[in-house]
Amino acid sequence: MPKLNCQEVQNLLEAFHDNELDGVNSLLVQEHLDGCPDCCRQWRWLCEVEASLQRLNELTPLANPDLRRRILQPTSLQPSAVLAFFERTGE
């Protein structure tokens, strides 16, 4: 199995973190990280970023419950009525 160099690993770190790599590439990245302090440092920085993004997500406010009502009745445009209209007109 060919090994990855530092540049290749650093290009894959985000996908590795997000579990978006296939099994082979995940193993190659993990193997490289285990033996490379420079890439490990980049990995730890990425973990700081990901932790901060996670907190950002948790602190993002929920939608005002009133928004759903307004979306359903912006100008009395009930979704069902609109759907029925488009069904009728064939659009």
């Binding site: 993002t60 939608a63 069902s80």
Partner: peptide, 21 residues
């Protein structure tokens, strides 16, 4: 239509929170 409506309305929260950011 009900299923479509529910699926579409079910996206409000994710859309709003993304729009907020």
């Amino acid at each position: 239509n009900d299923a479509r409506e529910e699926a579409i309305l079910g996206c409000i929260e994710a859309l709003y929170r993304t729009a907020f950011r």
